[in-house]
Computed example of a mutant assay.
Amino acid sequence: MTVAVTGPFASGKSTFVRMLGELGAETVSADEIVHRLLASDPETIARVAERFGGEVLGERGVDRRRLGERVFGDEGALRELEGILHPLVRREIGRRVSASRAPVFVAEIPLLFEGGDRYDFDCTVAVLTPEERRRGWASERGVGEERFQAIEGRQLSAEEKARLADVVVENDGGPDRLREQARALWERLLAERGSGGS
């Protein structure tokens, strides 16, 4: 059983995925794959440096902060970067799904519905959180209002993500409430897997 978890920025996606992992799912994060590619994959590093210049390189691969400054506010550059990275992420997630022996495989993919690449998952989940709370969490991560708005502008609205997802998780309570929803989803997924349904 394969599951993709998405949602707006700073909505608690990673926490929800981690909770599913604690219940027995194998998990992967698209962002972590991107970080690894930019840090240690020679082909990716070379392609990014060729397109965006040697100044984006750091001591270890691509310096993500410098790269972010280079593409921030430049829609065309951002699309080119995504054109390099997204197919590689999709391929790596596919490889991990094929190799997995876990009963449930969960991938955290922030731009699941926005990207041109179409994934094929048994179930899609949108984690939604009230905007004021998300702004607070973003601020705690050092993300200012301008950057928050730029990230928001690249993504579908929370309502649209909810409409496209199979399951909506409302992260509007505390961690215990989120954990309850993770357990409920886990039990549902195992039941569907056992019955051969989707």
Rank of each mutant, 00 (worst) to 15 (best):
V143L: 14
K161E: 04
R65E: 14
L128C: 14
G142K: 06
R135W: 13
R66I: 10
D63P: 05
G153K: 11
E92T: 10
H35W: 00
V62M: 10
G7V: 05
H86W: 11
S98T: 11
V125I: 06
E159F: 03
V127C: 09
Y119F: 14
L189F: 02
E131D: 15
L178S: 07
R101A: 15
F9H: 02
Y119G: 11
E59P: 03
A191I: 06
E32D: 15
G144N: 13
A49T: 12
E146I: 02
E82M: 06
M19T: 00
A39R: 15
V104T: 10
V34G: 04
D117H: 15
R65H: 12
F9S: 13
T2E: 12
T129Q: 08
V56A: 02
L189H: 05
A49V: 08
A49Y: 09
A77D: 14
S139F: 04
L185A: 11
A25G: 03
R36A: 14
E160D: 12
E159C: 01
V71E: 04
S139E: 15
V5C: 04
E131V: 15
L128D: 13
D122F: 05
G54W: 12
W137E: 13
R154L: 14
L57P: 04
S139C: 01
E82H: 10
S100K: 08
E140H: 02
H86P: 00
E55I: 01
R141E: 13
G197S: 14
L23G: 05
A4S: 12
P103K: 06
V125M: 07
A138R: 08
H86T: 07
R188F: 08
Q181P: 11
G174D: 12
F105S: 04
V97R: 12
E192A: 14
M1L: 09
D117S: 12
F9A: 11
P8N: 04
V106F: 09
R66S: 13
E114T: 11
G73Y: 12
L37P: 11
E159I: 04
V106C: 09
R65P: 00
E75D: 14
S198Q: 10
G144H: 03
S29K: 01
D41P: 09
E80D: 15
